[in-house]
């Protein structure tokens, strides 16, 4: 039994069938990649797991617990974090504030105390700040930009800040939607290294959508291939790369 199980998931918008009977079994401590052509339904799977879409049928279980009755915001407290395809940072805020927001779901202080910012709220804030600065900012090598507003940062760094924010949520499962899309070779290499380190040092299970096949082959433990809303293949990266269905979906039919 995996930490995250997706069982015969189906999703449609009006007459458009987005996902049909997709099942995924994600084992704890692995990097699980989802690949497939544009529009195959990959992001829709993440949106179902995150609670943004309600599937028509099927079941999603997190650590054995059915998520269908867990509201979107409470899934974060369970240990599900996410980075987005089009960076979804809070643009007016600094790097540090963005990352600290990731820990929002874990703060215990009540509304009144936090409005008035006294006692426990202040203590908690200081502790959070230490944790964020020492662990996450050091880890991601972004000390020198932590007080800058994120809108001023280059794209690669914004992606890194978004990852930092997800890590501050102390996730058990991290959903990453195209973490290296649009990055240059050096940025891609850094990000791949961070993802591997997160898996190994922080015991985080990672579900990854990506188009960069080099990254997929290098870092993932298990790959599922989605095409037209169906899972057409899955296995180790090597097995999937040689799978005839996958070659057909990506490259088209061989002529002659």
């Amino acid at each position: 039994m995996g930490i995250l199980e997706v069982d015969t998931l189906s999703l449609s918008f009006g007459g458009l069938q987005v996902l049909s009977d997709v099942s995924l079994d994600v084992s704890e401590g692995r990097i699980f990649a989802i690949i497939g052509p544009n529009g195959a339904g990959k992001t829709s799977i993440l949106n179902c797991i995150g609670g943004f879409y309600r599937p028509d049928a099927g079941r999603i279980a997190f650590d054995g617990r059915d998520l269908s009755r867990v509201s979107t915001d409470r899934r974060a407290a369970l240990g599900l974090a996410r980075t987005f395809q089009n960076i979804a940072l809070f643009h007016g805020m600094t790097v540090l504030d963005n990352i600290k927001l990731g820990a929002h779901a874990h703060l215990k202080t009540g509304l009144l105390a936090s409005v008035l910012y006294w006692g426990a709220a202040h203590h908690e804030e200081m502790q959070l700040r230490r944790e964020v600065e020492e662990e996450i900012i050091d880890f991601l090598e972004i000390e020198d930009i932590r007080n800058l507003p994120v809108r001023a940062l280059p794209y690669g760094l914004q992606k890194r800040v978004e990852l930092g924010r997800a890590l501050a949520m102390r996730p058990r499962v991290l959903l990453m939607d195209e973490p290296v899309a649009g990055m240059n070779a050096e940025e891609t290499e850094d990000m791949a290294r961070f993802i591997l380190d997160i898996k190994e040092e922080r015991d985080v299970t990672i579900i990854l959508i990506e188009h960069d096949m080099n990254v997929i082959m290098d870092i993932s433990d298990h790959v599922a291939v989605i095409n037209f809303g169906r899972k057409i293949a899955e296995g180790t990266p090597e097995a999937v790369a040689d799978h005839p269905e996958v070659i057909r979906a990506y490259l088209g039919e061989k002529k002659g």
Partner: peptide, 20 residues
Amino acid sequence: KVGIAMRATANDQMAAYSMG
């Protein structure tokens, strides 16, 4: 904290949701 959460909501609702 609530103020920051409100600003986050104003900035990006989807991201705010996924922050819990």
